[in-house]
Design a protein around this nucleic acid. Sequence first.
RNA 1: UGCCCGAUGGUGUAACUGGCAACACGUCUGAUUUUGGUUCAGAAGAGUCUAGGUUCGAGCCCUAGUCGGGCAACCA
Length: 559
Amino acid sequence: MSEEKKPTNFLQDIVEEDLKGGMPKKNLGFRFPPEPNGYLHIGHVKAMSISFGLGEQYQAPVNLRFDDTNPAKEEDEYVRAIQEDIQWLGFQWAEVRYSSDYFQQLYDWAVKMIKAGTAYVDSQSSEAMAEQKGTPTKPGVAGPYRDRSVEENLELFDKMKRGEFEEGKHVLRAKIDMEHTNMLMRDPIMYRVVNKAHHRTGTEWHIYPMYDWAHGQSDYLEGISHSLCSLEFMPHRELYDWFLDQIKDDEKPLPKQREFARLNIDYTVMSKRKLLALVESGTVAGWDDPRMPTIAAMRRRGYPPQALRNFVERVGVTRRENVIELSLLEYFVREELNRTATRVMAVLDPVKVVITNYPEGETEYLSTENNPEDENAGTRELPFGRELYIERADFKEEANRKFFRLTLGKEVRLKSAYIIKGESVVKDTEGNITEIHVTYDPKSKSGSGTEESLRKVKGTLHWVAAEQAVSLEVRQYDRLFMDEAPDGHKDKEFTEFLNPDSLQLIQAYGEPSLKDRAVGERVQFQRLGYFVVDPDTDAEKTVYNKTVGLKDNWAKKTH
RNA sequence: UGCCCGAUGGUGUAACUGGCAACACGUCUGAUUUUGGUUCAGAAGAGUCUAGGUUCGAGCCCUAGUCGGGCAACCA
């Protein structure tokens, strides 16, 4: 069979053209450059998929580079978490690097620029500099320190480095063009004084490079050929190239920055700043709260790594802004889980069923398949007895013929067990049903092959034997925000759209096997959805998180 | 009153160097089913932002406009 040709995206086309244009394949290099100031989210999966994907395609190295140029925001915890997430997704980096590895080289280059007259120390307040910078429609003007002598610049810069100044007193700026149409070219800041400890270099430095000054040079030092980033960096490209021009030697090829549109998903926020705010305010339990769009949260929620990768691959890569429907992500999660998750029985909203013609005190074990989608998944035994639990919603005293569940006088099958018939109900003084009395057909046992077992009934219910049922804490999640674009309203804070019912705690009953499943194991509660064992599980309690529900056409129609 | 991006069904992406718009999700039918899941069969839904132009022929090329996004952090 011929392979189906996958369409290429514009970034692959760029690489391909560079190769055709004579770039040796061995010069190819990519990088994934997160700032360790928060956890990675689903948007980063797209970025990773692009750069790691290209690396895989061309067998070129992909570095993991922590862009750690701002000690005020960055922490080791994030470095650790980011590596864990990347490994969980299955991407492989060539080397771990840090922008801070290059602080000395960057400093030396800065000195060289000062000597060349292309960088100077500015000693004004940030307000004054902002004033001189102009606006997008108004050109900037030169500040009073722009033409300081090389000697004075060198001396001041050296003192900045040695920690002789307070933060904010001086900065080093590139001398480009205060009237440039691109604001970033109006003498951008290269260094600022920061008297804080850095997570790796400690107190060695008192000056730290800005993003624009560090990023391209780091790419250059690592031999990155294609530095791929999101659209917001588009205007930075000009500066990126300008800085490279100042420091390049003629031997080494220059990296090129290219931009793609970042991933957005409806009903969610994707900025690290906003996610941090949710964590710090206690709105969610942490970066890995299953309602968050972070990789750690999705892992805890039960999303398989392959589902995330399939998702971002399907979404594609272009330069236009996009908002993906959450249902697409959920589709890939279900697709993966349908293939792999063991089917189990659990009842989330139990009501007791008594089989009046089943012998009291007796228990039998029934065989049930682990996964009808996987022949090799095997079977397991389920206890069955006179008293059971079923879902409250699976019974109505009377119902129309569209109701494929238990009613009085009609038959349904209990999954992997027997056919039962509703006979009567017991109610409390307020009229709530406390027990449903039914009779069963002993000859209708599942898989027995008897004529009785083969007869058609209008529905099949899941159930749990009351005596052997184990209690479960089930955490059912709904979307965190009720608005399609929580951060898309100019006059409203995204937090105004928080869904008050995004977390529902449920005490449920499950079959015995649910007690001893490993943390992280994903199962399907039959007819309900996919669930995963939460790390909060311990000797006392068993906790399951709802990953995603099954598709439910009936609920949709009756809604 | 500037500069830079972008514009294809509800959503996202395709359409080789121009050859009568495809795929996935979603929606709707029907079949199968011991999960109202899965699977299978099928349907509806855009004529590609607008107006000109080039061409035998334009979603692809050109021009002008419209609309959307971005650009004034000692963040990345």
